[in-house]
Simulated scan of single mutants.
Amino acid sequence: MNARYEPENRYQAHLLRLLRDHGPRSRSELGDAVQVSRSKLAVEVDRLVELGLVEPAGLAASRGGRRSGIVRIASATRFVGVDIGATSIDVALTNGELEVLGHLSEPCDVRGGPEAVLERVFALVDKLRQVDPFPRVHGVGIGVPGPVSFREGTPVIPPIMPGWDRFPIRGVVGRRLDCPVLVDNDVNVMTLGERHAGVARSIDDLLLIKVGTGVGCGIVVGGRIYRGVSGSAGDIGHIRLDESGPTCVCGNSGCLESYFSGWALARDAEAAASSGTSPFLGRRSAETGVLTAADVGDAVTAGDPAAMAVVREGAARLGRVIAALVSFFNPGMVIIGGGVAGIGHPLLAEIRSVVYRQSLPLATENLPIVLSEPGGTMGVVGATHLISDHLLTMG
């Protein structure tokens, strides 16, 4: 494999995207897909082989004449995806077809600051090297839980990431791992993962609502992530619902996130436990000393009326925001993801009820509203898709 993952022209980039997304293909199949002459295709494929970007993979079945050679992305290709959350880090290693070869996760408080958190990322990459001693990383994609200047690769005044403002993540990671790096917010990378390997594989216009510690929205228009002018598109968690509402982490009052998010659910769970309205959460608080959104989910599963009321009220507020987005954007699918989505059907049912009731029938008559697939790799897979797309964009 050459030192850099660099196709020389748009034909080569197109061929590599096909091999990434569809796996090994014969030269005949590639010629049909890119619609170039046989001689032109041969030149470009042979050049990719010379560059070490693709490699032979046997012969295809005969079409009646000489059997066509199969090629695939070079087996030494390695991408790293990093999904930094508020309370955890996920790191995955993939091949050139974005198949996960190794995946590690550990608890980590993003409030510890960029230097400490990124050292944990590098340690996880080193652990992955022990399992798969790859010669080099060809690109790294990173998702972080806050607003990101996509052009600069830096977080910008992220509410739940003290100490990260304008920190040069892209430069620091790029120098350490000696490869290209892209940084985006965690919702966008999760959305890319769902489009590549999740429930949205055939959907070109969609919204992904991630409800975790915060709330955000990934937007796909015409098959591409929409980030807006400065990269802040989709920051729905700070849409103000009521000026006299609870104080939000951003400093304003009455934001959606202050009513329904991981930290808001934990706050409401503590109130229900201390007031005695939720015996289940009262017992859980006595056992653990601190309550989380996951405890609210457990209480809902156990049929606790107070917890169910908290979830219904919060989901209804979220549903009203989604209904407005649906009326404005008219997506082909809405996906609900993030840690709070683990509450499952009671959450989804309330959101669906509000959206289908409040949005126009033309916008919702064929609109699926679904939960993200469980498994925990959509963020890291999306991050590798982010960087591989960047490297395979020519002209």
Rank of each mutant, 00 (worst) to 15 (best):
H22A: 13
S105P: 03
L19M: 05
V80L: 09
H138D: 15
L19A: 02
Q35K: 10
V144R: 09
I84V: 10
L128F: 13
A74R: 07
V131F: 14
G139Q: 06
L118R: 12
L124P: 02
D132W: 15
L128S: 08
R38W: 08
V91G: 04
S62W: 05
V43T: 12
D32I: 05
K127M: 14
G102R: 13
V140I: 07
H138N: 10
R38S: 11
V34S: 00
R25F: 08
H138C: 03
L128H: 07
R38D: 13
S26N: 01
S88Y: 14
T94R: 08
E55H: 08
R136L: 02
D109A: 11
E106D: 12
R25A: 13
P114D: 14
D126L: 06
P133T: 04
G85H: 04
D21H: 06
R129V: 06
V34P: 00
L59I: 12
V110Q: 04
E44G: 01
L51F: 06
G69A: 14
A42K: 15
G146L: 01
S39F: 10
V100T: 14
V49D: 12
S39D: 13
V137M: 06
L98T: 04
D21G: 02
L19W: 00
L124S: 05
G31C: 02
S105W: 14
I70N: 00
R129P: 05
S28T: 15
G65S: 09
S62I: 01
R129G: 11
D90C: 11
D46A: 10
R120G: 11
E99I: 13
V91T: 10
G69E: 15
P135C: 07
L124N: 05
P145F: 04
R25P: 03
E55D: 11
L53H: 04
V140T: 01
P56H: 15
A116T: 15
T94P: 03
E99N: 12
L15I: 11
D126V: 04
G85P: 02
G96L: 03
E106L: 13
G96M: 06
H22G: 06
P135G: 11
L104Q: 14
D132Y: 15
L41D: 00
R136I: 04
R20A: 01
T87Q: 09
P145W: 08
R72K: 14
V144G: 08
I73D: 02
V34G: 00
G141Q: 05
K127P: 02
P107M: 10
D32W: 05
D90L: 14
A76L: 12
R67H: 02
D126G: 08
T87P: 01
P24F: 03
V140Q: 00
H103R: 15
P114K: 12
R27I: 10
P114N: 14
D83G: 02
D126I: 04
L101P: 04
E106M: 15
C108G: 07
H14W: 14
R20Q: 03
L128K: 08
N95Q: 10
G52K: 03
D21C: 01
G113P: 04
V82Y: 01
G146P: 00
V137G: 02
L48Q: 06
S39Q: 15
G113N: 08
L118G: 09
V45Q: 06
E115I: 12
P145Y: 07
